[in-house]
Design a protein around this nucleic acid. Structure first.
Lengths: 96, 96
DNA sequence: CTTTTAGTTCAAAAGTTATTTAACTATAGA
DNA sequence: TCTATAGTTAAATAACTTTTGAACTAAAAG
């Protein structure tokens, strides 16, 4: 396996790990169906857990490249990182 | 969430967990590119681990519905369970 | 400047998954 | 029947992930 293949494999594994969790799938579903960015508190409500745990899941999704976060004042707005899905899991978002 | 949605979510999580592992991705890659069924020993060689560990990974893939196994005498022949990929991850197999 | 709001980080505990080794089952061949 | 081959299973352990609660940072409002 060459280096790009290895990196692709690592990227895939990170993404699949991030997707292999009910809370994180719920977060993605909420984001995808909302159509636009939401703040952490709003998303946190829908996933029924503590804010520190929600923050942990946001980080996991961010590090897998599945969401992106924009900071504005106190609030952080997150949204689906569509490019990653298109590259690694074409067609998946529409099945959510 | 209704029962079908829940079951779909559980199915997805099982699949993503199964895909979130280097050894199992290697097994799927080998199977997909071979174009036809291979026996456990052949697949085991390509994933560089003990036979019991290979067997553990086969089981994980089987239980996620990602491979199917046909028994013939002593040998077991496995192949990609294409329907599952088509349903849950359309387009993914071709990126492997 | 003090307090509230929004969110992150840290460390410990709890839970889950992967690896290892040895024992096991089932079929095939001598 | 005895032995080899192909693979599974079980139990222990190692490695990893998730949850929790408390302490923290940074911006906004009073």
């Amino acid at each position: 396996m060459n280096i790009e293949q290895l990196e692709l494999t690592e990227k895939r594994i990170k993404i699949f790990k991030a997707l292999a969790d009910e809370t994180r799938l719920a977060i993605l579903k909420t984001l995808y169906h909302s159509g636009n960015e939401l703040n952490c508190t709003e998303v946190g409500f829908t996933c029924d857990t503590s804010k520190s745990n929600a923050s942990y899941h946001f980080k996991t999704l961010r590090e897998a490249g599945l969401i992106k976060v924009r900071k504005d004042g106190q609030a952080r707005y997150m949204s689906i990182y569509k490019e990653t899905f298109d590259q690694i899991l074409p067609g998946f978002l529409d099945t959510l």
